[in-house]
């Protein structure tokens, strides 16, 4: 990327290019819903109303044991049937919505 040019000028240009690209992309994402969907992705529900969605689980490579682990660590839940919804968020984390009364 910088080849044999180790000058401060080149380092400055490189950093500005990367920071500039990041700013441009964030502006595009802010103004275009379509661009945001493709660049950021959308959350995927793997557990809906307590029902496991096999298609979503297989395609996101997430299995129920990972959802139970997230439910335990984030909500202090003991079992999968205490989870109402579980979603894979854009950043890859698993978010948990507990059943009412759990």
């Amino acid at each position: 990327m910088v080849d044999s040019d180790h000058s401060i000028t080149n380092a400055f240009l490189l950093i500005m290019t990367l920071v500039g690209l990041s700013i441009i992309l964030s502006v595009i994402k802010h103004h275009s819903k379509t661009a945001s969907r493709w660049l950021e992705g959308l959350p995927v529900l793997v557990l809906r109303n307590g029902a496991w969605d096999k298609e979503a689980g297989d395609n996101t490579r997430v299995d129920p044991s990972e959802v139970v682990a997230a439910a335990r660590s984030k909500q202090g839940l003991e079992r999968l049937d205490e989870v109402k919804h579980a979603a894979i968020e854009n950043d890859g984390t698993i978010s948990i919505v507990p059943r009412e009364g759990s």
Binding site: L45, H85, V97
Partner: peptide
Amino acid sequence: DDGLQIEQDRTHSRREWR
């Protein structure tokens, strides 16, 4: 309908997975 406010679009997700 299930009370969850989430922008999920299975058609888009299937396209992404492909």
